[in-house]
C-alpha cells in the first residue's frame, strides 16, 4: 500500500470521525444532508458485499466494517435519535436522491468489469459514490451558517478523493496492468464535484472568515 492510498483512507476516516463527533457530542446534524448519508450507506452496503467472501487483509476488513457501521450509525442518528433528528434541516435538504440511484444501477448493469452479481453491485457502488456528495453540496449552498465541523467533514471527504487519484497515478506506474477505467473516470468526476467547494473553503480559510457558498 502506498502513502497516497493510506493518506486517502485516513482522511476518509477523519471525515467520518468529524461527522460522528459533531452528531454524537454536540447532538446536532445541522447542515448535514441525510440524503447524502443514505447514499453512502447504500454505497458501502453494495460495495462491501464481498466482506466475508473475499479476504484482502485485516486492514481492509476492519476499514470496511468501520465505514459500514459508521454510515448506518449516522443515518440512524439523523432519522431516529430524538434530539439529533430535530436539528436536521429537512426543508433545505430537498435533492431527489432516489432518482440518481436507478441510473447508477442501470450504468452498473451496462458498464462493469464482469457481468456477475458482485461485479455489477461493485460498479453500481462506484457510480453512486461519484454523485453521492451532490445533496450535501446543494444543502451547503442553502445553509446560511455553515459550521466548522460540517465544512471540515466535506473538506476531508474531498481530500480523500484527491489522494485516491494520486494513489492511482502511483499504482499505474508501479504495478503492471493497473488500468481501471470505471473507478478512474467515476473517481475523477467525483473529485471535480468538489472543485467549487475547495475553492471557497480555501478562500475562507485564507481570509479567516466563515465559509459561505454562493447559490
Amino acid at each position: 500500500m502506498n502513502l497516497f492510498r493510506l493518506a486517502g483512507d485516513m482522511t476518509h476516516l477523519v471525515s467520518v470521525v468529524v461527522l460522528l463527533l459533531k452528531i454524537h457530542t454536540i447532538k446536532s446534524c445541522a447542515g448535514v444532508s441525510l440524503k447524502t448519508q443514505e447514499l453512502y450507506a447504500l454505497v458501502f452496503a453494495a460495495r462491501y458485499l464481498d466482506l466475508f467472501v473475499h479476504f484482502v487483509s485485516l486492514y481492509n476488513t476492519v476499514m470496511k466494517l468501520v465505514f459500514l457501521a459508521s454510515s448506518f450509525t449516522i443515518v440512524w442518528y439523523m432519522r431516529r435519535h430524538k434530539i439529533v433528528r430535530r436539528t436536521y434541516d429537512k426543508e433545505h435538504d430537498t435533492f431527489r436522491h432516489h432518482f440518481i440511484v436507478l441510473p447508477c444501477l442501470v450504468l452498473g448493469l451496462l458498464l462493469n468489469e464482469k457481468f456477475t452479481f458482485r461485479e455489477v453491485m461493485w460498479a453500481f457502488s462506484i457510480y453512486l459514490e461519484a454523485v453521492a456528495i451532490l445533496p450535501q453540496l446543494v444543502l451547503l449552498q442553502r445553509t446560511r451558517n455553515i459550521d466548522n465541523l460540517t465544512a471540515q467533514y466535506v473538506f476531508f471527504l474531498g481530500a480523500y478523493r484527491v489522494l485516491y487519484i494520486f494513489n492511482w497515478i502511483y499504482r499505474y506506474f508501479t504495478e503492471p496492468h493497473f488500468v481501471h477505467w470505471i473507478s478512474w473516470i467515476a473517481g475523477i468526476v467525483q473529485t471535480l464535484l468538489y472543485g467549487d467547494f475547495f475553492y471557497y473553503y480555501i478562500l475562507s480559510w485564507k481570509n479567516n472568515v466563515k465559509l459561505e457558498l454562493p447559490a
Binding site: D50, F67, F178, V179, S183
Partner: peptide, 10 residues
C-alpha cells in the same frame, strides 16, 4: 480477471 487487484481498495 482485470479487476482483482483493484478490489483491495476501499
Amino acid at each position: 480477471n482485470s479487476g482483482s487487484n483493484l478490489k483491495d481498495e476501499l
